[in-house]
Design a protein around this nucleic acid. Sequence first.
DNA 1: CAATAAGCGAAGTCGTCACTTCGGATCTTA
DNA 2: TAAGATCCGAAGTGACGACTTCGCTTATTG
Lengths: 182, 182
Amino acid sequence: MRVDARLNRERILTAAEEVFGELGAQASTEEVARRAGVGVATVFRHFPTKTDLVEATLVRHFDDLVAHARTLATAPAPGPALGDLVTAMVERGATKVTLANLLGAADQVPSGAADAAQRLRDAVDAVLRRAQEAGVARRDVSVDELYFLVRGLTQAAAALPVPTAVSRGAVAVVLDGLAAKR
Amino acid sequence: MRVDARLNRERILTAAEEVFGELGAQASTEEVARRAGVGVATVFRHFPTKTDLVEATLVRHFDDLVAHARTLATAPAPGPALGDLVTAMVERGATKVTLANLLGAADQVPSGAADAAQRLRDAVDAVLRRAQEAGVARRDVSVDELYFLVRGLTQAAAALPVPTAVSRGAVAVVLDGLAAKR
DNA sequence: CAATAAGCGAAGTCGTCACTTCGGATCTTA
DNA sequence: TAAGATCCGAAGTGACGACTTCGCTTATTG
């Protein structure tokens, strides 16, 4: 692959992340191209369909979160680690959830995104289990439920322009409900 | 207004509720017309823009919830009433939230929907305050946060068909976090 | 029951957006 | 450094969806 091609690919991904974050998932491919400083044809050469572009953006984002989760899985304090993870997912994912919605709306869920989501699920699972074994998280909560909660918080946060006292408070309530009963 | 016009209006609203619930917010107006058994022109005569149609559907749904909330505001047990309300909003609203997203994406938030949302907020506020005064809900939670949580849970439930057990579990966690500390 | 006003649907128009084509510019390698 | 492969952007194309027009139908009213 030529160096200019690789550079453009990188520029497109970065632009897609910005544009979809600001304009929402229905932003046009042409807007992404404009922001990246390339022609539309270049975008389509790298990502044959719009779904491919969205998928690539999502996978990149998910893998970031996976790395973060794996670090937290070996952190000294399992309880705060779980809290950190939830907060990070909500705040960093806020702009990306609309993308996931677009993907969900498509008839077929692309395998690449599904794989990345699975990796993230597993990493979150590890953090949760560790907190449960340390006795600082309810044992009757499954990853599915935690995932559901995080997804919900993230989606609600995405509606707001900036993380606010309200979203922080809501996260606090959930973390409190997640904590082991005293 | 002629009786056939009123009947058609009713049919259109019902169809819109179904279609947007099943196909998502980006479903076409023509699909709504087909489902209602009328021509597209009829839909546009009753609701000049698609936004108007979405708004009308939302207002109807919100007002249903407002009625429910007002009933619960005078229920004998304030704690379970709050739980009931949250559950009802999440489960009944699941198909409707995508509509709210579409509205939010539009440049202008129609005043009608904003008013209905305000009425709902006030009704929920009443139920929450009553639970707090009865000492069964945390006092450091505001309506804003509760609303945020419900919105998130509903959106997550709407996004993809989730097993009821999972959404119920997640709601339980939130309600637990909402309960007064022991 | 006839006149009339309101309502209705079929067949458009217009703009937008995902995706393609092709002639020219640019990087690579011998 | 020059041949040649690779990459690029400007200008399409075709489909789809929001919204309009108009001739016909149907409910209302004196």
